[in-house]
Amino acid sequence: MSEITPDLVRHLGVLARIQLSDEEVERLTGQLDVIVDNIAKVSQVATPDVVATSHPIPLQNVFRPDEVGETLTREQALHNAPDAADGRFRVTAILGEEQ
């Protein structure tokens, strides 16, 4: 069993600037105790010959060269826009504010 006590939980609450009720302290004491115990169990089976991994299957990023390709002209991009003005998409005001 770990050494998580209600006093320790209250102290951690003070450090985190979180006001905890007595019920919360009691609940968190049990939860943190379980978490610490589980971490201890994992530490017992972790050995130097087992390589730490972040993912069980080796992953490799697939990159391609960043090459400039054909792009739409401004007119093509705005061609089917419901509303456009001054070479830009025109949309309704957000939060009722006109700019």
Rank of each mutant, 00 (worst) to 15 (best):
S54N: 05
E26M: 05
H79M: 05
G30C: 03
A81P: 08
D83N: 13
G69K: 13
E67Y: 04
N61F: 14
E70D: 11
D33G: 15
I35P: 03
D49P: 01
I35K: 01
D83G: 04
A77C: 04
P56G: 08
A46D: 14
V91E: 08
V42H: 02
K41H: 07
E24W: 05
R90H: 12
T53V: 12
V34G: 07
D37C: 06
V51T: 12
V50L: 10
P65S: 11
D83L: 13
H55P: 00
E67V: 15
V42M: 12
A85K: 15
L28G: 01
P56I: 01
D86N: 14
P58Q: 00
R64K: 03
V91P: 02
L32R: 04
L72C: 09
F89I: 03
V42A: 11
D83S: 13
D22I: 01
V25T: 09
V50E: 09
A40W: 12
T73I: 02
V45Q: 12
T29V: 05
A85L: 09
P65Q: 15
V62L: 09
P82T: 03
A85Q: 13
V42S: 08
S43D: 14
I39D: 12
E23V: 03
N80P: 14
S43E: 11
V50W: 04
F63M: 10
A77Q: 10
A40I: 04
V25H: 05
T29N: 07
V51H: 03
T47L: 08
R88I: 03
P58F: 00
T71F: 15
V62P: 00
E26S: 11
